[in-house]
Design a protein around this nucleic acid. Structure first.
Lengths: 192, 192, 192, 192
DNA sequence: ACGTGCGGGACATCCCGTTATT
DNA sequence: AATAACGGGATGTCCCGCACGT
């Protein structure tokens, strides 16, 4: 049966923003409902599993959007690992900039409060990160980078860490640093 | 003057562990007091600023311990950038292992909930990360690494991100990946 | 006209069981609907008066079933007051046993939460108890028992109280005690 | 350490009255706090176990008060089983009268919502009823009544059931009926 | 330095009853 | 006869910060 309202969607979008900004526990359902304009009475109709279900769905949405971003960056940088890395860093930096360095990574913020003790959530997060790593690895391998998987993991870790540094520093210097580092590393690797 | 009790110290240690595991908002003062065995009545004697002061002091303690760890790694790897990077990665990985991958970075977890809107806390965190970056940069420069500051930033970002990946994956693969990547990058750089 | 669905009947049966087990306020409509398998959407079509109407109908059903049980016990114990009392006690005990001592008396549970402030419900309950008392009195009088009405009231009170004791004790000892007591009382009365 | 306020006591007294009138689930903590004038903020300081602990303590208080009432009735009816039974019935009836037939038995109301699935509460209730049965049995035995335990159980069951009937009927007829019945039964037994 | 007690508010959850729609 | 969705409020629980006494 087709959905009749967008209440669910509004709640998910607002929850994602707040979880990324404040974390999970610090974000009350009341704040989500108020800021999203979603109706209060039907929250448990849409999310019978409560806040946990909401957080899980936010994680899954965020993961699939991130995966799409990676794939679209890969699509425009065929055979160009250096360009791919720089495009990825710029995309992350641009989103941080647009939010005035307020938005963290939803997966990271959820992990910080739940992993590894909440097994269901940890599994969701692991799948999400795995999908990102695999997509990056695949493209780097297509570009004939050595140890594509190791570099993909290092790049992903650096991007995640750079988000935290950027929030604290209020600028995108960390993203420029990692873009520079990984680009240099790829150039030297190619020359070798 | 000698301290009279260790209530303050116990609270700080327990708060650090809980903030690293669950985050700030999800950790109640009651839990800290209960788990630390500290007395209830004198919490606001020791921490008149309440939970905020506690979090600030945890951040500062964590920052100075981290700085000491970086400097001690540097002290045993004179002129050996590759050894330094590997030692650092191993140290981070070892701590995660010992905690069964439950402990995040205190600075990161606090940043996730407070930056950039809580200006005082953000400033504290920025100082902390800056001290780490400076120490790493200094040692890499001593080892005559090109763009020491850029690599230091990338390395720190990667270490922070690897903590999240390790918590979610339940293993230290991310640390091994970044150790391998940065070591290779340093070798090639030296050869060039 | 034949009924179209049994949704109404299923709701009533499930509500009776839950009201007897948990009481009125502790039983939510959601639980009744879920456990009965009845459709959610048409509850207020079948019971426009809501939970109050449901409770009233449960009380009336329970009262008429109880009355039928009393009359059928009377029918097989003509001129045998002692046999009637024992049969009644055994019937109550058997139902408790079958439910593993989980079921209280619907009238008693509703009375515990509503009497005497809810006048409509109190009137329904009074009529119900009155019908039981009258039926017992009538049969005892047919058996030529002295003060049939007094004994009927005492017997009914004891049966109601025994239900509570049986639930708490997890056995039917209370029913056996009152069967023994009232039977002895009737024998002595007959001898006198 | 001596208690410093009567907040605990006020909450217990009000909770007992409300549980007896409305039952457990229908009585909110907010109502207890409001009507008792007890402070809200320290409720979980006094009752860390929450509503369950409150209900348990109410049950225990009610049980010990009831036991005291039985013993004091026994103390003034030495060797007079009939007088004892009548005194007990009158005492129950008088309390009902004074409350305008609004107060049920705390143990019965709690049992109606919790027994037998809440094991801890059921055990508390069983101990309570057992103490009452034992005290009545003991006095009847002292009065040389045959089958003192059986009669004690029957009497207790009748008293409990009479409370429900009295609430519904709005008068103490049920108490007078059981007083008459048990007194007659004792007289005949003595004559036999 | 510490225990007891309180004030007032927020939390996630669940409630019952009512819509509009079909 | 049933569904999806909603309104608004109540639930028990827990929170942080602050008194007062010792």
């Amino acid at each position: 049966m087709a959905r009749k309202t967008d209440a669910r969607e509004k709640a998910l979008r607002t929850a994602e923003r707040l979880f990324r900004t404040q974390g999970l526990a610090a974000t009350g359902l009341a704040q989500i409902i108020t800021e999203s304009g979603a109706p209060k009475g039907s929250f448990y109709f849409h999310f019978p599993g409560g806040k946990d279900q909401l957080a899980s769905e936010v994680a899954e949405r965020f993961a699939s959007h991130g995966l799409a971003a990676i794939r679209s960056a890969a699509a425009v940088t065929t055979r160009d690992a250096k360009g791919f890395v720089e495009l990825l860093c710029n995309a992350f930096a641009a989103e941080m900039n647009a939010s005035k360095f307020a938005l963290g990574c939803a997966l990271q913020n959820i992990a910080a409060e739940k992993a590894p003790y909440d097994h269901a959530m940890t599994a969701t997060l692991e799948t999400a990160f795995q999908s990102w790593t695999a997509a990056i690895t695949e493209h780097l391998a297509d570009c004939e980078v050595n140890d594509a998987r190791g570099m993909a993991t290092a790049l992903l870790a650096a991007l995640e860490g750079a988000r935290t540094l950027a929030r604290v520093q209020g600028n995108d210097a960390a993203f420029r640093a990692i873009a520079g580092h990984f680009a240099a590393s790829l150039r030297e690797s190619a020359e070798a």
